[in-house]
């Protein structure tokens, strides 16, 4: 246990340089784009020169980009950094938009686990039958179909034709514990809100999850078959253990690589969120970052990047801990 704590502390310390690196690179890319951000923020062509100069002074735009970066990070972390476009503090924006993205990615992730893993197992158990072939085609499509194309197709079906879904607004319950309605409704056992959240999110989450489902189904199939072919399975048979017990061993062995990839898939979900949110009209952090880019509000954008990087690193830290829980050969 002491080992585990040391490992977590060590990993948390590495968060700092990683976060600085990620935000610095993104900031650099945004800052070197030849544009006059102060003028854009002040209103473009008709901008008042006085306002432009105020903005330049306020955001240190006449200084080298690394000094700008320093002031940005300082302001951001002290929660004094105000978006020059929206006029809100960057953290405030994140707090408003983040819950939507968290709900979307969480539901997506649940879909990946609940659909991808069983599909892979069924595929492995029915190896070389038509069931296996069908699942493999579904999985292959998931990996290769662009999600925006699939999204519009499904919107046409479920929104235009069937009218089962809505494409605007998100359910917000009157109470707030974590700020995320999905989790709050579970904590409060408020199943009506929960159902509303699911109703709004299931299709975008499914679309977002589809590539991940494809990857996981293929991986589970292969690792399951691999584990099924191990020598220890022969010895389980030779000891006369029942089938269920054998599958238990096989599944646990197959889980080791799957958990790793699930962690990476979470990153894929976060990366796919801007497109999905935009298409399905979900006011999430991904869409917020996209609009920030359109309005050259790279301060808000880097703020979003910061939070997304933080989530991604946390998920992968959890994956690494799980990895060692499953596989005793892994040492911290």
């Amino acid at each position: 246990m002491a080992e585990l704590r040391r490992f977590i502390i060590r990993r948390l310390i590495t968060f700092v340089p990683t976060l600085i690196g990620v935000t610095f690179i993104v900031y650099l890319i945004a800052a070197v784009v030849p544009a006059n951000p102060a003028r854009l923020w002040a209103g473009g062509q008709k901008a008042n020169q006085q306002v432009v100069e105020m903005l330049i002074k306020e955001y240190h735009l006449n200084q080298p980009f690394y000094i700008q970066y320093y002031y940005f990070m300082k302001g951001f972390l002290e929660n004094t950094m105000v978006s020059p476009v929206t006029g809100y503090k960057v953290w405030h924006e994140i707090k408003v938009y983040m819950p939507v993205t968290v709900q979307l990615t969480l539901i997506s992730f649940v879909f990946i686990v609940l659909i991808g893993i069983p599909l892979g197992i069924i595929s492995a158990l029915k190896k070389d039958t038509w069931i296996d072939a069908t699942i493999r085609v579904i999985a292959l499509l998931g990996v290769s179909v662009p999600i925006f194309w699939l999204a519009y197709l499904l919107i046409f079906l479920f929104f235009t034709k069937l009218g089962w879904i809505t494409l605007s607004g998100t359910p917000t319950p009157p109470y707030s514990i974590t700020g995320i309605p999905l989790i709050d409704s579970i904590l409060k056992l408020d199943w009506r809100t929960f159902a509303e959240v699911i109703k709004r999110y299931w299709l975008p989450a499914l679309v977002l999850a589809y590539p991940g489902i494809g990857v996981i189904a293929r991986l589970v199939r292969n690792t399951f078959l691999d584990a099924l072919g191990s020598d220890f399975v022969d010895y389980i048979d030779a000891r006369g253990l029942p089938r269920n017990q054998m599958y238990r061993h096989v599944l646990k062995n197959a889980m080791v690589p799957i958990v790793t990839v699930l962690g990476l898939q979470f990153g894929g979900l976060l990366a796919g969120a801007p497109i999905t949110e935009t298409i399905f009209g979900l006011p999430g952090i991904g869409r917020f970052m996209l609009t920030s880019i359109y309005s050259s509000d790279y301060l808000s954008m880097v703020g979003g990047v910061f939070v997304i990087a933080l989530i991604y690193m946390t998920v992968n830290l959890i994956v690494d801990i799980l990895y060692a829980v499953i596989d005793p050969r892994v040492r911290y």
């Binding site: 020598d231 220890f232 000891r239 005793p328």
Partner: peptide, 16 residues
């Protein structure tokens, strides 16, 4: 009827 196989490393599940 019990068996002992050639390679003990391969007979045991590494996760248990």
């Amino acid at each position: 009827i019990a068996y002992i196989f050639q390679d003990p490393s391969a007979s045991l599940d590494p996760l248990y």
